[in-house]
């Protein structure tokens, strides 16, 4: 294992350069900021991920953000275990009716100021599941959404670009 670590050290970092913050996301957030008077959070964000009925593919790509190639933590963005420690709720899935209350309670437990990001086609408007008896049809049906990141699932770089836009906006740059 030591040789492995030594080799890794000599090989230099595998982490890739960050994509620029998503322009679409910056625009959406800018508009939101003007209307919603969001307080600024400084250059660090804590995210609580909530699966509200996802197929689990969105989760796989959110997971990938933590791998050494994307290394989300270098930007001061990290996933936390409790909504009480979170600035951001990153929500996936069409919000199944069975998860509606749990999502709402998680949102209630997140201290203000907070941002909500709808991740993936399902979270935006229910996606392919929107006509079912068992789904509400998107995150904004249940809690107010600040940023939408499209994709099925969004690629890690797209997620990263969206989150960086959020970071810039919330830091008041």
């Amino acid at each position: 294992m030591l040789t492995h670590i030594l080799k890794a050290l000599r090989g230099g970092p595998v982490t890739e350069d960050a994509p620029p913050a998503s322009r679409d996301a910056l625009e959406e957030l800018g508009a939101r900021l003007r209307t919603a008077t969001q307080a600024r959070l400084g250059r660090s964000l804590s995210i609580r991920e909530v699966d509200a009925g996802s197929c689990n593919a969105c989760e796989l790509e959110v997971h990938a953000l933590n791998n050494p190639v994307y290394d989300l933590e270098r930007f001061g963005i990290r996933f936390v275990a409790s909504p009480r420690h979170a600035d951001v709720l990153l929500v996936t899935g069409p919000v199944s009716k069975n998860m509606r209350e749990a999502l709402h309670r998680t949102w209630d437990a997140t201290p203000d100021p907070k941002w909500v990001v709808a991740c993936g086609a399902c979270a935006i408007d229910g996606g392919l599941f929107k006509d079912g008896y068992a789904v509400t049809g998107g995150v904004s049906e249940v809690v107010p959404v600040d940023l939408h990141i499209p994709g099925c699932p969004p690629r890690p770089v797209e997620l990263l670009a969206g989150l960086l836009a959020l970071l810039e906006t919330s830091a008041g740059k």
Binding site: D51, A52, G53, S54, C55, A57, G93, P94, S96, N98, M99, A102, L128, F129, D131, G132, Y133, A134, V135
Partner: peptide, 25 residues
């Protein structure tokens, strides 16, 4: 049961190609 989306119900009456998209998810 928390993430029940009613997939079997959604597939009913869908053309094969559309149902395939649901199956993929």
């Amino acid at each position: 049961g928390w993430v029940h989306k009613g997939i079997e119900g959604l597939m009913r009456g869908k053309p094969v190609e559309d149902a395939a998209k649901l199956a993929a998810r």
